[in-house]
Design a protein around this nucleic acid. Structure first.
Lengths: 248, 248
DNA sequence: CGTTTACTTGAATGCTCTCAACCAGCGTGG
DNA sequence: CCACGCTGGTTGAGAGCATTCAAGTAAACG
């Protein structure tokens, strides 16, 4: 499978944090053997499923989620283009959390057996992928911080800052904004608050000139102010220094 | 450095989830070259520090934490004996979160360079360590779920269940309980609630016969009931089936 | 003992939730 | 073409879980 979009995204994602031999990136991108389109609201990964393929998100947004028995839902991770959405399936038997497409998505797939062989032969690639899972973990822990001690407005600020930085890393920001086609209901599941409260807080942030949202796009006219409000410090994302200027 | 306690703990930890060659475990345990004692309340890892050594916790409890500017603190992860407390330092330059000893702790240290060489030569070991970081991530995501949608009592129930299972995996439970020398203040930082509320909720759980705490030890006389209350499903810990009986 | 730390309990405040109503946009089908 | 239903967004009011402030008790420590 040759796909310049896939190659570019993979290369950007892996090279931005560590030096990976071009050969390794080439081999990885050529080892992808399948692609899928998933429509919004469908599951990319079903709760409790076993996988034999690792998926790389080439376009669209999706979210890892869990339900409680009474219907409460929490998103535990949001995935953007350039994320390996189920790298863990390579070593974990079951995926206890589901993965839902927030928008129409496209993924490229690589079989466990191919990836297995590849990381054995290309240790630098293995290290890069391991680093990706470490950063996923760091993102989760930062989110624990946010949910644990921050109030609704601070959580919101942090959420937008993090997403902006992550989009920046894969080159998907457009000026001071980016595409974010999430409903308030979905944001509420991400932020651990009710949809009604999401609406009110967004109203306040808008009044304060910190965010603008319309047509599935968000603009952050005062990123530094937003970062200060949410006490967002992007170290954990291991982004290159030149991308951090916007925040400081 | 030869230390039967270290070897036993390493072996239990790595072998319980995957088959790892005995040779690899041996080599790993012998590659540890230092040990440290840390007193309660001291930092094992300082916020923002760089490390050149990975530490394996051989006894005691510690917690990863972050502060906000106004003094709010959140624990993002609790570490128990048998955990690699900063595996991530092998690939991540900075450790944005600090690590504080909740009790007196002992760690064994292995230099990055030794570990580097070892995982290159023993791919199965590398995969086991990678799995550990994946499970750390899964634990964080489950905690996001808990903080996001569960109320104080449910969070409490889940916290004790998870800790019990993790202690069980390394063989540190004693009957239906285990040693847990945490203050209510520390639990409040873990559970994302005020210390006063921790006290009240613990009182309720005690009245309901779900927990008993005294002298730095906790007993869970009705583990199944506690798991039901917190909707705890231990799949994400990848524990062997025979350890799961207590919950179901 | 006196001092500090941890735990306990009460009362008032407040952030966030739920319930509810209402509006706007959009696609469908009559 | 318009009526209709559906989804998503907006706003108000009341309720509730959890917080803060405060005071007081118990236990640990030098």
């Amino acid at each position: 499978m040759s796909d310049t979009h896939l190659y570019g995204l993979l290369s950007a994602k892996l090279s931005i944090r560590r030096d990976v031999p071009v050969r390794a990136v080439n081999r990885l991108s050529q080892a992808f053997s399948s692609s899928r389109r998933i429509s919004a609201k469908e599951d990319l990964v079903v709760e409790g499923a076993q996988a034999s393929t690792c998926m790389f998100l080439t376009s669209g947004f999706c979210a890892r989620y869990r339900f409680l028995a009474d219907g409460r839902r929490q998103f535990t991770e949001i995935c953007i283009p350039g994320d390996f959405v189920n790298l863990g399936s390579l070593m974990k038997k079951r995926q206890p959390q589901g993965l839902i497409a927030l928008t129409d998505c496209r993924t490229a797939g690589i079989s466990h057996s191919s990836l297995d062989r590849l990381i054995r032969e290309e240790p630098e690639l293995m290290r890069s992928l391991w680093l990706e899972t470490l950063i996923d973990g760091a993102i989760s822990r930062e989110w624990v911080l946010s949910l644990g001690v921050q109030n609704a407005k601070e959580r919101f600020a942090r959420f937008f800052c993090e997403l902006f930085m992550r989009m920046e890393i894969v080159g998907l920001t457009e000026g001071d904004g980016f595409r974010l086609p999430m409903t308030q209901m979905e944001m509420s599941d991400m932020l651990g608050m009710s949809a009604v409260h999401v609406n009110r807080i967004m109203g306040e942030l808008r009044e304060e000139g910190l965010i603008e949202m319309s047509g599935g796009r968000v603009r952050l006219p005062d990123l530094a102010g937003l970062a200060a409000l949410g006490e967002f410090e992007p170290d954990y994302l291991e982004a290159p220094a030149d991308l951090l200027r916007a925040i400081a």
